[in-house]
Design a protein around this nucleic acid. Structure first.
Lengths: 353, 353
DNA sequence: ATGAAAGCGCTAACAC
DNA sequence: GTGTTAGCGCTTTCAT
């Protein structure tokens, strides 16, 4: 039923080797035979057996994508699924398949990274890992010594020597800084910040950016101005509702929410309290997910260049796989971009004491 | 560097066959040797070469998931990505990998279904296909004669003889019916419906359910009460804003939006016009995506049993792959469930003429 | 320019 | 209970 090169060889009256060479466009075979074989293969509906091929060449034509476990969570997936789409798009263009996996099997605890590499199911790895615990040094060593091409993306891989890995990431510190600076520039002095629980690097870095911007502008950094939540809409909503007294007492006018979802929740909460945005409060989000355009006022936010991340990451991985420019590591920090929309506004000083 | 069964055989002083048998838990080998071999394999960090294995057994341990192309679009992915998560979860439990793919490569136009099957990259296929154009009869025949196990999910596969395929889907007609009936039961007489452009079966079926419910309750079906949009928040928003005059003129009080996202947009639009929900308008959505809980009032909606779909679909596919109960097709229509929350309310008849 | 043959790592008859 | 061997479908030396 399935047609193999052997079948083609038989029918064409040539050897398997010639068929293989022809279909792989080897220059060693006469143009004429090559053409004949190709056409024959085509009419016979031939397709390489990927397993046989991989066994022989050690190339599978599939890329492994390692996602943080909480990808499964709803809110988190909004930004990531957009990034993933871009990655898929690129790989599709190259005719590559992809296997998406968590670092570990959640049931057996087995390392999917190790498994995928050892079982030779993939040609390379794209890794988004939030922190040290998820991809530990042992695994990292394993990948390294297996010589599997891999690229880290999205965050700065702070848990390892950046000189020793390929990584494409955005400047989360800078993003946090810019968001805060924007509020400061608009005259806001009392700015709170909503970040995420946990040790995910991106949030730690955004918060550092927030602090730095305040300090650079001689505004005291107050630890109780940093609220930890769950990076989704309801968490943003809840933090604001519960702490509204605090917000009023402290004369807060600027709010930096470290995810757009939180920012949306913040806006909802303020609206529900009869407040107006940006007249009463200025809000800055983070991510620039598509969803924000569905809400009024349109959110001022930090755009992450997802498409660029995807393109650069995939291109780099392909270089590694194809063995070009793989003598030295590539390390790119992409700038985020402040997108000013409608949720931020110059503070009205005339009303101040 | 990589350790193979040959290495183990050499070190253990047995043949490759014995090693293979041991690691595959064959009853043909003595318990003692088996144990010894297993431990050895373990300490040596052995892992089967998936390609060699697949070549020999024709089993790959990976499942292909075919998604509609517009999975890439943001709004659409909210429901589907939740479904996909559930599927992944099940497959993870079984130690299976998955390759997610569109029906065709968007660049080359090549059929990914054919390619994945012919190249023997997958053991079975999970197919979510919106309509006839995406998975045409030729491909269907191809799958069939390739004997690749496959299960359709999410929609009723109306383009083929349902008796001849395995399919797990929800009752979109029933869902549309229940949503509408709920509004009718609450006393609403003038009910509009927001559906999606295109020929996606799920929406056609939901609209049919809407019509049937009206007819069954002696309410005239008016074609201009059905609005076509893009299944996202802004589309819902726009339809309501643009047609608010129509809504008022026609005394509309009930709105059935065929996606939750549209429903959210509807609520926003009405709010922005100073209307109150559910006092002025009752809204019913569809899907029961997680996002709806982030909005007030909480949306009354049609819950789709995604987890059940995922579990049943995957279980069935595994049966097919393992050759159990594969003599007759399985065809399950799951019921949706009306979830009554805060966006619907009995119509206040005292105000009526 | 083409063919023969070995080998990739594993499984499964078939022998013993 | 274990070993030998052929074979899965392809690539790639090495011959010719």
């Amino acid at each position: 039923m399935t047609v193999t090169i052997k079948d083609i060889a038989r029918i064409a009256g040539v050897s398997k080797a010639t068929v293989s060479r022809s279909l792989n466009d080897s220059p060693l075979v006469a143009e004429e035979t090559k053409k004949r074989i190709k056409e024959l293969a085509d009419t016979m509906g031939f397709q390489f057996n990927a397993n046989a091929r991989s066994l022989s060449t050690s190339r599978t034509g599939t890329i492994g994508i390692i996602y943080p476990e909480r990808f499964g969570e709803f809110g988190v997936s909004l930004y990531y699924s957009s990034l993933l789409s871009q990655i898929r798009d690129f790989l599709e263009k190259e005719g590559l398949d992809n296997i998406v996996s968590f670092p570990k099997n959640r049931y057996t605890g087995e390392s999917n990274i190790k498994r995928l590499i050892q079982s030779k199911k993939i040609d390379g790895l794209l890794i988004i890992h939030p922190n040290i615990t998820d991809v530990d040094q042992r695994i990292l060593n394993f990948i390294e010594q297996s010589k599997t091409p891999y690229v880290f993306l999205h965050h700065f891989p702070s848990f390892c020597d950046i000189e020793k890995v390929d990584a494409i990431y955005t400047d989360h510190f800078g993003g946090g800084y810019d968001a805060t600076k924007h509020l400061i520039d608009l005259g806001h002095k009392n700015i709170i910040c909503l970040t995420s629980h946990g040790d995910s690097m991106e949030f730690i870095q955004r918060t550092e950016g927030y602090r730095a911007a305040l300090m650079d502008n001689d505004i005291a950094v107050k630890e109780d101005f940093v609220f930890k939540g769950y990076r989704d809409i309801s968490s943003g909503y809840e933090i604001i509702s519960k702490n509204f007294g605090f917000i009023v007492e402290n004369n807060i006018t600027g709010i930096f929410a470290q995810t757009d979802l939180m920012a949306i929740g913040v806006m909802q909460a303020l609206k529900d309290m009869g407040k107006s945005i940006p007249d009463d409060y200025s809000i800055v989000g983070y991510d620039d997910i598509e969803l924000v355009m569905d809400f009024r006022p349109h959110l001022t936010t930090i755009h992450q260049p997802r498409e660029e991340i995807a393109v650069l990451t995939c291109s780099r991985l392909l270089e590694l796989i194809n063995g070009v420019n793989n003598n030295k590591k590539v390390n790119i920090r992409l700038n985020t971009k402040l997108i000013i929309r409608e949720s931020t506004k110059r503070v009205d000083n005339s009303l101040e004491g």
